[in-house]
Computed example of a mutant assay.
Amino acid sequence: MVKKVLIVSNSSDLHADLVVPILIGKGCTPFRLDLDHFPRDYELCQRFRQGEWDGELRHLPTDQRLRMSEVGAVWARKPAEYVFRSADLSAQEFAYARQETEQALFGLLMALDCYWIGHPAVVRAAMWKGEQLKRAMALGFRVPATIVSNAPARVKAFRQGVSGDIIFKSMSTPALAADDVAEEQRLVSGVGTTIVSEEMMESIDAVGELACQFQEYIPKQYELRVTIIGEQLFAAKIHSQDDVRTMVDVRDMTAEIRYEATTLPADIAQRCRAFVASYGLQFGALDLIVTPQGEYVFLENNPAGQFLYIEQLVPEFKLLETLADTLLREAACSRS
């Protein structure tokens, strides 16, 4: 049986938009499940009978169908809010519909015995920043001195024990959940990694409301984004210190700093691979710092991170094609 590729994402995902034609060009038409159109534009069926199981998805606008027995590889990219055929559901009806949809869909997908990039259970287990730091240390990485606490006195003591500056860095999202509320309800659009000033320390009692993460500020020679797809590793050197806007937080994409391909020392590459593999992940996007003294410091891993911008800035990295080839190869090797 020829195995197929299932892509689970949303209709605004440019990564999926670009991988689909690559797969088609290689002879595989994937089935794309856009969660922001589900279940409105899809039909789902899962059956259990006399010891046998089967399931099917159908995209109603195109009549494209996918039997679960045909799936050899799944790329789970990005979540989205479900949408229903009725636009006038009450609050309780909508809440119940979301819960039942979650059960129906993931009861189907999680039953698949195939290759996954981004298995939801694995990604969730790998997303916790505090656990990542502990795991990275166990693998031999240096990590920044860090405290996560809602005890102001402990944060003050941490600050006094660090010889240089400390930073505040959100553990969940630098957008501070602005994307999760209506525009008129947003207080701020977000806060990036920030050096904590003495003035900010005067208001440190505010952390009594919410546990926050503080770290020692690590001086940088440059930064690294290490993308792992299957067996392939791509290391991008980021010259973040070339522009004042990216010296503390490299995520300011308005700064036209240099990104270039680089080769990691063998031991660092091995640690990166081991870190990703330790979760059972097939994808990882790790952020590292290289200090002026040449020491490598682990910051975090993004188990479902963005990577298109890396290919755009380092064109010799064929990340989209590597991902497509990995899905196709593993689908062909999947269990029949």
Rank of each mutant, 00 (worst) to 15 (best):
T173C: 08
F307D: 00
E256H: 15
D242Q: 14
S240C: 13
S240R: 08
Y42Q: 05
M68E: 06
E102K: 13
P120R: 11
L14W: 07
Q46D: 13
E100I: 09
E199N: 10
L57N: 05
H59A: 09
S9M: 03
Y42F: 14
E260H: 07
A95W: 12
S69N: 11
V20W: 01
G51R: 07
A76I: 02
V196Y: 06
F141G: 01
R186K: 13
M201Y: 03
Q46E: 15
Q282F: 07
D180H: 12
D205A: 09
A236V: 02
D63M: 12
E209T: 12
M171C: 13
R329T: 15
S197P: 03
Q270K: 11
G51L: 06
T194F: 04
Y96E: 14
L308D: 08
L319P: 00
D242M: 09
L108W: 09
H59F: 09
A80R: 07
R67T: 07
A255F: 00
S11E: 11
Q99A: 15
A277L: 08
A277P: 03
A236K: 02
I268D: 05
K237W: 02
D34W: 02
E198D: 14
T29Q: 12
D113E: 14
L33K: 00
R32D: 02
G305P: 03
L6I: 02
I7L: 11
T291M: 04
Y309T: 01
R47M: 15
A125M: 08
L308Y: 02
L33E: 01
V8Q: 04
Y279E: 01
